[in-house]
């Protein structure tokens, strides 16, 4: 059985499922504009950090968006920031896995927001650390399935061990960005969330 192809197909289906859900949902113009803006913000933030492997603020930006605007917006911003930023940094087999990885980070942050009142820097930092490793592990799955033989626990751990320093650097960067920008970004995004949620009522006379 070709596990690499199965993994690719499952990943594509997962992403398409989320995209379809988004397409079917009632999405306002404000949400679209917000997703586009945060996607650009997350995507553009990768470029100055492209020289430092794994040290970038994208995961934090995706997570804070998911935390404030919900899991669906978090997934869309995560998946699209990988897609858009790779138009500048270069598309490759990694694009698909980055889309899934960042998308999941956005979803998890959205779930965390439901458990917590306001912004909990500690909890967000812990989740961002976990997401740092999770993101790396998602990238590794395909690498292990497509390029390593035999597929057993030994080679699985070996593959993960090779990426461990990079994943740890990613975790470190997530914590640093959460500590520096966490509260500022939460306050700004929350303010815009309130501003975006204004409803126009029909006037009947």
């Amino acid at each position: 059985m070709n596990w690499a192809i199965i993994a690719v197909v499952i990943t594509i289906l997962c992403i398409l499922l989320f995209f379809r859900r988004f397409e079917k949902a009632e999405v306002s113009a404000k949400e679209i504009a917000l997703i586009a803006t945060m996607t650009t913000f997350a995507g553009i933030s990768r470029i100055p950090f492209a020289v430092f492997p794994s040290f970038q603020p994208t995961t934090f930006l995706v997570m804070i968006t998911g935390y404030v605007f919900g899991a669906q917006t978090g997934f869309m911003v995560g998946a699209m920031s990988a897609l858009v930023s790779n138009f500048f940094l270069g598309h490759g087999p990694w694009t698909l896995w980055q889309m899934l990885g960042w998308g999941i980070c956005g979803v998890l942050a959205g779930f965390l927001a439901k458990q917590v009142q306001g912004f909990s820097r500690k909890r967000f930092a812990v989740l961002s650390a976990l997401c740092g490793y999770l993101f790396g592990w998602i990238q590794n799955i395909w690498h292990w399935l497509a390029f390593v033989y035999p597929l057993n626990m030994k080679t699985f751990w070996a593959t993960y061990l090779v990426s461990f320093p990079f994943d740890t650097l990613h975790v470190f960067s997530n914590i640093v960005f959460t500590m520096i920008f966490g509260e500022i970004f939460y306050a700004v995004l929350k303010r815009f969330q309130r501003k975006f949620s204004v409803e126009y009522l029909e006037c009947t006379e």
């Binding site: 995209f19 988004f22 397409e23 999405v27 679209i32 504009a33 997703i35 586009a36 803006t37 996607t39 650009t40 913000f41 995507g43 553009i44 869309m76 699209m80 897609l83 858009v84 138009f87 500048f88």
Partner: peptide, 21 residues
Amino acid sequence: GRSYKIALALGLSLRLFPLMR
């Protein structure tokens, strides 16, 4: 054609890149 919301968000996002810079 089919995913116009995603296409719109993607198009806007690509055009916001130089503006944000």
